[in-house]
Structures are given as C-alpha cells and as structure tokens.
C-alpha cells in the first residue's frame, strides 16, 4: 500500500484521523514513559534515603509554594566541573520520596542538591529573610513573611502524611500521631531551613 492512499483514507474519515493521531503520538510515551514508570529500578530508594520527617516535609512544601525550583536546580550532573562545584552527582534513588521532583530547569541561583550542612542554620535564616544581608550582589528575593507564620498554619501535616502513605511512603501511625507536636512553635522559615539542611544527605562525603 502507498502512504498517499492511506492518507486519503484518513483525511476523509474523521474517526480514522483521530485514531491515527492517537496511535502515532502515543508511541514515544509508550517507549520512554511507560517502562520508566513501571520499572522499579527508578523508584527504589538509595541507601540512606528515607521519607521526609514532618518538619522537612512542611519545609519542602513551602519550597514548592514559593517556586524556589524556578531558580535553583536540585540535580548535580555527572560532569567534572559540576562535581567539583557541588559535590557527588545525583542518583535516581535519592529522589524516591520526592513528590513532585524538584530538579528544576534553570540555575539563576546555584544548585541546592548538596547544600545540606554546608552553611549554618543561622546563615540560612538570615539569607532567606534578607539575602543581601549576607550576599551583597544577590538578586534573590527576600522572604520576610516566612518568619511571621507558624510552619503548619493550615494544620495539614497529618493529612499530608496519610496521603503520602497511600502512595507508599512508610510513615507509621505513631509518626503521624506525633507530627503536629514536632511542628509546634516552629515558623515557616524553621521548616524551610530544616528541609534545606537535609538536602543531599544520603550522597554526601567523598566529593573530589
């Protein structure tokens, strides 16, 4: 059969045209996405990678709310200069509890995947509330409101942990029970700093 004849048929029957588009446009997804999603290899946590504790989880959701990933990647590529600058390159298993993933697509600011422990909590706090107090040339926005609000003002932490447990994050009943107490008295900036300080912990050490 000739392609031109097939085309003649497709463009005369809207049902066939729709079917043709569906078929042709789905192949790429079937090849790349389906195996990636169904293959366990990409979802197995790396050694030392555990679900976020309630404080870090809350901090992570603040990171998402403020779209930090617009300017900061969390993905150290296996390139010499990148490993020298940021530390060991990122592995798939380190992100097994990241919903959604926050690798980002742009580095207006530096990568943060290995930032955990590099600076003190006190520095992060100053820097988040007023970046130019410590980095004069910085073009990062200031986030003064983070210091003014309780970390979990919506009271959502238990619902969040239960939702994640349904997706396979191994939170115990006791952990969920104790979560609000862990957040008691903390502000948003405390939670965000806790999240940042935990970043990349499972892959630290041994940077060349």
């Amino acid at each position: 059969m000739r392609a031109i004849d097939l085309q003649r048929r497709l463009e005369r029957h809207s049902g066939w045209l729709i079917f043709g588009i569906l078929l042709v446009s789905s192949i790429g997804g079937l090849v790349q996405v389906l195996p990636s999603v169904l293959d366990d290899g990409l979802a197995t946590p790396a050694a030392g990678t555990v679900p976020y504790d309630p404080v870090a989880l809350t901090g992570r959701d603040i990171y998402i709310r403020e779209s930090c990933s617009t300017c900061h990647s969390q993905q150290v590529r296996p390139l010499l200069a990148e490993v020298l600058r940021y530390g060991p390159f990122s592995k798939a298993g380190e992100f097994a509890f990241d919903r959604p993933f926050l690798w980002g697509s742009k580095r207006t600011g530096p990568d943060l995947h290995r930032v955990g422990g590099k600076y003190s909590d006190a520095w992060h706090r100053i820097h988040l509330l007023d970046p130019r107090a410590v980095v004069p040339d910085s073009i990062m926005p200031a986030y003064p409101w983070l210091a003014e609000r309780p970390a979990d003002s919506g009271g959502m932490i238990q619902a969040k942990m239960r939702a994640l447990r349904r997706l396979g994050h191994p939170y115990t009943d006791a952990e969920i029970e104790a979560a609000p107490a862990a957040l008691q008295g903390l502000t948003e900036v405390d939670a965000l700093v806790a999240f940042l300080q935990g970043l990349g912990a499972s892959g630290s050490g041994g940077s060349p």
Partner: peptide, 24 residues
C-alpha cells in the same frame, strides 16, 4: 495526583519517574 486540600496535592509519580513523565 492525590489531593490533600483544595490547595495541595502530591504527584502520583515520584523522583526520577516523575521527571520522565513531567518532561514528556
């Protein structure tokens, strides 16, 4: 995604799998 509240949900996919789906 699994909703938690009107304003919040968690992606059905995690990490590297989520990345492949997202850029597709």
């Amino acid at each position: 995604a699994i909703p938690v509240a009107w304003s919040k949900s968690y992606s059905l996919f995690a990490g590297a799998q989520d990345a492949v789906v997202q850029w597709w």
